[in-house]
């Protein structure tokens, strides 16, 4: 049988993969995809806890699933705004490489 720890381990590994993507990759779009991976790792652990802690009626605790619903909605809005910023940045600088975008660097 799968335990709660199995799901949490998978979620933790997925989060670490996304985190290393944000730290190691230099392409803005790939960094953005790695951010999505991290959001989804959080969703997975939320759903696992919702299934683990049953309510009094013996059904999963749906509060966590409502939170996951909100996270997915906010993430979709975030992707739209972020990609619009990337397109505007590409128009101005002709690059998506983070090391070429250093106007604010001290």
């Amino acid at each position: 049988m799968t335990t709660l720890g199995d799901y949490l381990t998978v979620s933790g590994i997925l989060f670490a993969v996304g985190f290393s993507g944000v730290l190691l990759r230099r392409n803005v779009i790939i960094i953005f995809m790695a951010l999505e991976l991290m959001l989804n790792a959080a969703n997975l652990s939320l759903v696992a806890f919702s299934r683990f802690r049953l309510g009094e009626d013996g059904l999963p605790s749906y509060n966590a699933q409502v939170l996951v619903f909100f996270i997915i909605t906010v993430a979709a809005a975030e992707v739209a705004v972020g990609l619009a910023i990337i397109v505007a940045l590409y128009r101005a600088r002709r690059t998506t490489h983070v090391e070429d975008i250093n106007s604010l660097k001290f």
Binding site: M1, T2, T3, L4, L8, F52, L54, D57, L59, P60
Partner: peptide
Amino acid sequence: MAKQTFPPLA
């Protein structure tokens, strides 16, 4: 808590 399996649904 992580070592427990999921309880069955009602």
